[in-house]
Design a protein around this nucleic acid. Structure first.
Lengths: 208, 208
DNA sequence: TTCTTCATGTAATTAGTTACATGATTGA
DNA sequence: TCAATCATGTAACTAATTACATGAAGAA
């Protein structure tokens, strides 16, 4: 059993989905764009690999199924899988990790053009708008279905609230940042920091 | 020249630092915890490897130096490095990527205890408080040094504003989430979603 | 003198991505 | 019947991490 590769957060993420209901691999890819992938993004091919690892560990069980004439593999959680999930949930999870290439480019914006900086900012805003679409759609679906009958609604609310405020933050920041950069002189050497904004940011940082 | 491995965002991030001033590898690790690492976190050993790649591409230049009796390698940017950086900056950068294990655990909180959920939330808040420390310190340093004479202050402000609001968001969300979870019955089956909160979140999502 | 932290790196491993391949289903 | 996209996977590669190693400087 323990000869298989160790389980990662990705493994447990998928195990968590299987704890809700059985999934085919393709259905897992849907969840990646809709729910889990927003907090723990992974490429599609991982989703074909990880469930096999769960099976090797005895935490999931695979069954060959067909849709029409096409074969597919359905995965479901085993009792051992449920207790492994329970054990994993007992350990507090890591805080968020941010990777933001656009912001890296802004950090070095003095070596590029003002227009390039604005383009990175615009792209970040577009990203936030796009992510927020799906977010709104999911929220509306929950409300019309009447959340009282969806047993997973309390968890979804915790996640949805974070993502909602996160996307809004990115968009609002982008609007502000675009204003700032538009006020920059074209020549980097002539740029001066907006000191009142600098103080405003520092005030916002003192929330403790 | 182009026989070396292709450059990644990590490569250009380090190149950007070298565009500010020459760095030893150890000084690069400092910047990773202080500035660049907040937006583009990488493990220390990468910082010993990437500059060599920059040198192989002719974008940086290394010089053997000593501190006392100890040898160290100092890296500085070359003219070709500056133009490579400029070219990279012209392409808009990717939007943010979020990875949040604690939130993954909350998504599946019905399979664990309420206390475990609260622990993940508390850890996220602690994380935000800790990150925010360095953030405040950096902001204060800027103000006392009088930002008008720091040519990189406008860029730092863009980045600092994002991080400030981001850390504050995590902390405020954690406080709210803890309230929510504390109101959960111990038995997962009895948990009901707070519908007024659900609507409140949806309203916050409609900003466009 | 001893302990700790600073500072510098290498080697082994792996988690994850990119690229490739292909048959089935559905709608025009 | 043709095109698009749905659906299912494998293989090759690599960016990044973890683990290991070690000497110098400074503090107690």
């Amino acid at each position: 059993m323990s000869s298989a590769r160790p389980l990662t957060t990705t493994s447990y993420g998928i195990l968590g989905l299987l704890a809700v209901r059985p999934y085919s691999t393709y259905e897992l890819t849907r969840e990646m764009s809709r729910s889990l992938g927003r907090l723990w993004p992974r490429t599609v091919s991982k989703l074909y690999e990880e469930p096999k690892k769960l099976v090797a560990h005895g935490l999931a069980h695979s069954r060959e199924d067909t849709v029409g004439k096409r074969p597919r593999t359905m995965y479901s959680i085993t009792p051992r899988g449920r207790s492994a999930l329970r054990a994993w949930l007992e350990e507090p999870g890591d805080g968020p990790t941010l990777e933001f290439e656009g912001l890296v480019k802004l950090l070095f914006a003095e070596h590029g053009t003002r227009e390039a900086a604005l383009a990175s900012i615009a792209r970040a805003r577009d990203w936030a708008v796009e992510q927020n679409q799906g977010n709104i759609a999911a929220g509306e679906a929950f409300l019309t279905k009447d959340g009282r009958f969806d047993s997973r609604a309390p968890e979804t609310l915790l996640v949805g609230a974070f993502l909602t405020d996160y996307y809004a933050l990115v968009a609002r920041w982008a609007d502000w940042a675009a204003d700032q950069v538009e006020s920059w002189p074209v020549d980097p050497a002539e740029r001066r920091v907006d000191q009142s904004e600098q103080r405003a940011v520092l005030r916002r940082a003192r929330w403790k």
